[in-house]
Design a protein around this nucleic acid. Structure first.
Lengths: 246, 246
DNA sequence: CGAAGTCTTGAAGAGCTTCAATACGCGTGG
DNA sequence: CCACGCGTATTGAAGCTCTTCAAGACTTCG
């Protein structure tokens, strides 16, 4: 065997390809930029608040989440990552992490060093813009979460989250039939939505009783997507899934 | 008179200079990139949801805010802009606005066309990284707001917001003695913090009674900054105000 | 001076949290 | 194989934070 082994970056390519066309050389640059796949087990922290990582991490398979814990233990999850998402692309510029990242499920990841990223920004402006775009979509998602926690009811928020995740997973071809894997406890869900564990449970019961969503262990089964979108007031423009020159 | 008139971009230069050193040529590129100052009156919308602006807008003086309104009229403000902040730098890549931007006070602004920004990304990688950084700090601030709305009490959130704004204004030399101008109604404040108008009023009364913060018309007077920080659990690392090579 | 916007306070009620107890599911070791 | 323990889910009940409704006062401005 010779040449570089194919690295399973396909989810990233799918995500980027959602927003703009990629040239072959850009694909090659990306393929070459990433290190070998690494494995992580559920519950492990990928990065901790205060760290200054020397590279950024891409999720190949599995899910991770960003969170911040206040002094007294209250925790807020501020985003979820699926295959093709960078866990900490922002650390390339921000340097110091202002939050932690944990593995939600067993994950395989791949790293790019910040040196390599810097080289990309020097030589590949279009690719740079696309990476920048990744962080901007991240941003749009966090804003949408903020709107939800600030102004939507607990039930609406939950419905919205499920709509969002299903769509994002579909975009990287990790969706199943009428549902998807979501390896979270109800406590985790509460920390995403700014809810207590108990109320999270009640919201889920309500969605079940309305025959909108069912949880089968770690799997979410969406029974009535249109109904769920109606309840959530879901509108996908904030995901910016439009292919156009950038 | 000849040559380009000096444009009052100084707040942007101050902000960028907070994070990294700028070369003279970079300063010149920036100065040249922006159009002439324009004036806006309080209450006007700078940009509306669904717009596809052809340029990005920088605040020279005054304040603006991003917000989203749900179908039934509930509104959430997702960020505040002060001099030196871009209102919609993300529209350069995202193209379509997924929220609106309004003027909080009378403002003077200046625009850069997206064509110019694109040219910058082609020729000035370091400057590009700094612009990218601007959007990443934006992002960090929104995350912090999310943590607040999700996990902090109304009072803590209010205190946190005031701490944040005072620090940001100081960084661009727009701070007064022991306070600052903040031309918002209590309804606006509520929409920032995810609170009702009535409760916002009660939170302000509490802070006044505790002799932490006083409102004198449109001016916020901070009586006890350390006390406020303690109450808020304020930690400024998320603002990333550290000068280092990027 | 009247009108519109904003601030302030009271009172009732909704949504969500906290405390508490029970049940369930799964892996481990006796 | 069963007992035990631990993490997770579920439900009831009480209570607190914040919202909503309502009304009055104050401010600004034509």
């Amino acid at each position: 065997m010779h040449g570089t082994a194919r690295k399973p970056i396909d989810a990233l390519l799918l995500r980027l390809g959602q927003h703009d066309k990629l040239s072959d050389s850009e694909r090659q640059v990306l393929q070459a930029a990433f290190g070998p796949p690494e494995s992580l087990t559920r519950g492990q922290d990928l990065i901790s608040e205060g760290d200054e990582p020397e590279g950024s991490t891409l999720i190949l398979e599995g899910m991770s989440f960003r969170y911040r814990t206040l002094e007294d233990g209250r925790r807020q999850i501020v985003s979820l990552h699926i295959p093709g998402d960078f866990v900490d692309l922002h650390s390339f510029m921000l340097k110091r992490m202002d939050h932690s990242v944990g593995a939600l499920s067993d994950c395989t990841i791949s790293r790019v060093s910040h040196d390599t990223l810097r080289a990309v920004t020097e030589d590949y402006p279009h690719l740079t813009r696309l990476l920048w775009l990744m962080t901007l979509v991240d941003n749009a998602i966090v804003r949408e979460w903020l709107v939800g926690i600030g102004r939507r009811s607990a039930t609406e928020r939950m419905a919205h989250l499920i709509c969002e995740l299903q769509l994002r997973l579909r975009a990287v071809e990790r969706n199943g039939e009428n549902g998807f894997e979501l390896p979270v406890t109800q406590a985790d869900l509460g920390d995403m939505l700014g809810l207590s564990l108990v109320h999270t449970n009640r919201v889920l019961r309500y969605l079940r009783e309305q025959r909108l969503v069912l949880w089968e262990g770690q799997r979410v089964r969406v029974l009535d997507r249109p109904g769920l979108e109606r309840l959530a007031g879901f509108d996908d423009t904030y995901l910016h899934r439009v292919r156009r020159p950038r």
